[in-house]
Design a protein around this nucleic acid. Structure first.
Lengths: 193, 193
DNA sequence: CCACAACTTGACTCACCGAGTCAGTTTACC
DNA sequence: GGTAAACTGACTCGGTGAGTCAAGTTGTGG
């Protein structure tokens, strides 16, 4: 019962090396250009051919599953943890929205994740699900302490962040200062009057 | 000097009839599905073949130029007029944003117009330009009377409405009540504290 | 050192989707 | 009824990137 790790027959040394280079290249490429970057580009950076990515990972979904942790999950989950550690519900929500908008701005991959560009990836959907959950917590708490307008729903929060993602995906990338200023408009708009 | 109307040699009766049917079909189709509706679909509704649209209008841009007035320009300009007739700057801005968001919701063609999907259409660009102008007026007035937060810029307003358009274009269409509620969040977010 | 399985390669096929074309046909008009 | 105008719709094109696979290369165990 010792080897519960992998049913896969060991890879040859060169294959192992290539797989690792592909992973690293994918992390870089996903960071820089989002999850939709052409696989050929990932291959080029990794110094292999496109076919090798298919051999090793089975395609884009497999590759995403293999690296999404390092690309966005870790950072996003850290935000959720820090959020939950904040006592005051109003401040908690403010922190969360600000931090997610910040991460969206810095990481196109988070945008693609939140837009559910690849609904076939289980890991991706798990991340979205975690998002939905914390949104419900935040809204419930925010309302019971009167920090949020009473008609504001968890779906509103979902949509707000989804629309943020859309703007970054399809719009012109704003200067950072403008983006941050607009974050405060959003926050003030959902705050209790 | 009487005939300054058209240098075009008169169309044959059938061509004239078809052109009119195409115009009507285009207005319908643009209303229902936005300016990006496949021309083949417009042709089908008009009861002609795609080729005829090219014969008569030269392609999508020409067709848009021929009908954009009835599709969105009239309604949008009416909004601008009514906006300018409102005395109180705060209320003026509130009316404008609400009315434009309403029209965006009802008319996918306005969304496409504001997203500048066809920058080659002069009429379309003229509409955008008119938008930019009124945005500047509104923000200047709104600020000098203290209804708007002082850091809010005309570009912020532009982006706000642009992002609204993006959300409708690429997102899931919200129920009307949800959409309207979110309009009030936006308005409250840009209002002076 | 060799034999062979594992691995890599990159040119190829596929799919998508609608714009725009044009040779052949139909139709209005004189 | 002759002719030019108009219509048709099958066809080409374009751009992009996923996914395949026959042929070539390389690591490895004996």
């Amino acid at each position: 019962m010792a080897g519960a790790t992998a049913p896969e027959p060991r890879l040859r040394a060169d294959a192992e090396r290539n797989a690792e280079q592909i992973r690293r290249a994918a992390i870089d490429a996903f960071h820089g250009r989002g999850l939709t970057v052409p696989l050929e580009e990932v291959a080029k950076v990794a110094g292999v051919s496109k076919g090798t990515i298919f051999n090793r990972f089975g395609g884009r979904i497999g590759l995403i599953e293999a690296v999404i942790e390092e690309v966005v999950a870790t950072e996003l989950y850290a935000i959720m943890d820090r959020t939950r550690s904040i006592g005051e519900p109003g401040e908690r929500l403010r922190y969360y929205v600000t931090a997610v908008r910040d991460l969206q701005y810095r990481q196109p991959a988070l945008v693609d994740t939140m837009l559910q560009v690849y609904p076939d990836s289980e890991n991706l959907m798990a991340i979205c699900h975690a998002g939905t959950e914390i949104h419900e917590e935040l809204v419930t708490a925010g309302q019971s302490c009167g920090a949020l307008r009473p008609e504001f729903t968890a779906e509103d929060l979902q949509v707000l962040l989804h629309d943020s993602a859309l703007a970054l995906k399809h719009g012109t990338r704003p200067r950072r200062a403008d983006y941050d200023r607009r974050t405060t408009y959003l926050l003030d708009g959902i705050h209790a009057p």
